[in-house]
Design a protein around this nucleic acid. Structure first.
Length: 278
DNA sequence: ATTAATGTTCAGAA
DNA sequence: TTTCTGAACATTAA
């Protein structure tokens, strides 16, 4: 499930289409219910035809094509979406393609097994509003320690749950939240307003370390095998997970306690009772 | 053969 | 204002 490192890997994987010209956009043959594409595909294709891709950015867990027209084309993978230039994992779940010219590859593809992902074309103004209206916080790789503290410290929400809220900080999801709190030695159920300054410092530092290392490893491909990089190869960070999906295993840090699973906000949290204190 | 679990985001309720 | 719940889905494990 793509979080910041997986989406950043997708972004890096398609950088070679920077400077390419979009010829057309189309839905690909797929017998499943269509994914959300806004505006509708014929309007989208008309607005994109002949337009150059100026740069490729990332906004939290979204891949953003910055177009020469100043419009932004946003790919939101949600649970199982992939932005690809190579062959997709299956033909039947290929949802969308951009045909390209002046490019080393002829197509940019969006594949999505579950179909919860979306593709949205926004004008520059709409895009800036999306940033300004507070729905998306600063990127997890960019946020400063004081800003992180300011956005979390007053809340009574458990710190693990707060990290899933993309309006506080964008990019951390269920998997990396557990990993970050484990390395920072903070109990996931601690209310944000009970987290101390030294703990925030460790959370901030570990957050950047974990995300950057996971990017180097091209993200985490879990047992369902869904997540792939832009060439359809699996990531390697899953081998480095200390706690995520390792309930009952010995904690790699203390080698004394078993990793526990806890349900918070209807999702699994993994942690070590011995290493992570409130 | 059902049912639960998976996890991101949004709309709408509390 | 803030926090919580359910729904959107497809697939797999139980």
């Amino acid at each position: 499930m793509p979080e910041l490192p997986e989406v950043e890997t997708m972004r890096r994987g398609i950088l070679e289409i920077e400077g390419a010209t979009i010829e057309a956009a189309r839905r690909t043959p797929c017998n499943k219910r269509p994914i959300s594409i806004k505006p509708r595909i014929d309007h989208l294709s008309r607005r994109l035809g002949g337009v150059k891709i100026a740069s490729i950015d990332r906004l939290g867990k979204r891949v953003v094509l910055h177009l020469a027209t100043e419009d932004r084309l946003i790919f939101e993978p949600r649970m199982t979406g992939l932005v690809l230039i190579g062959d997709p994992p299956t033909r039947e779940h290929l949802r969308f393609a951009l045909s390209l010219s002046n490019s080393p590859v002829e197509e940019l593809r969006f594949w999505d097994r579950r179909g919860l992902g979306s593709i949205t074309l926004l004008t520059n103004k709409q895009y800036q509003e999306k940033l300004r209206d507070g729905r998306l916080g600063p990127d997890a790789l960019e946020i400063s320690l004081p800003e992180l503290i300011r956005r979390f410290e007053k809340s009574a929400t458990p710190v693990k749950v707060a990290f899933l809220d993309q309006s506080r900080v964008a990019g951390v999801g269920n998997l990396y939240a557990s990993e970050i709190l484990h390395l920072a030695r903070v109990h996931p159920a601690t209310a944000c307003n009970r987290v101390g300054r030294a703990q925030w410092q460790r959370i901030h530092q570990r957050m950047k370390e974990v995300l950057e290392l996971a990017i180097e490893y091209e993200g985490s491909t879990l047992s369902d095998g869904t997540y792939r990089n832009a060439l359809n190869d699996p990531g390697r960070y899953q081998n480095e997970h200390a706690v995520y999906d390792r309930e009952g295993e010995l904690c790699p840090t203390c080698s004394a306690a078993k990793i526990q699973r806890l349900v918070q906000a209807q999702r699994s949290t993994f942690f070590c009772r011995r290493c992570q204190k409130r």
